[in-house]
């Protein structure tokens, strides 16, 4: 059985059952919920990156920026 924890970041953390007979140490798992999933339709009058910054980041919209790799996934280093 596994549960999924919500974190303030775009990352979700989950753990799966670990048997005492499993050969490898348990590993915390992470998955990304990018902003397009949470807000699948753009609204108007939103904040914008400066043009040059937007070109480098790949999006004009801070609310649709999804950094990777994350600095810390759910507060834990992998």
């Amino acid at each position: 059985m596994s549960t999924v924890e919500r974190t303030p970041s775009q990352w979700r953390v989950y753990r799966s059952y670990h048997s005492p007979f499993d050969p490898c140490p348990p590993r915390t798992r992470y998955f990304n919920v990018p902003p397009n999933v949470l807000q699948p339709f753009q609204t108007s009058a939103r904040k914008q990156f400066a043009p040059h910054e937007a070109l480098r980041k790949g999006t004009l919209w801070p609310e649709y920026f999804s950094p990777y790799p994350p600095e810390a996934r759910g507060g834990e280093a992998e």
Partner: peptide, 24 residues
Amino acid sequence: IVDSLRFLREREVVHSLRFREAVE
């Protein structure tokens, strides 16, 4: 190379967003 790959990954996020909008 990570810098370029992060840009490409963000474009996937934006494209997904725009396809979701197309559905709407």
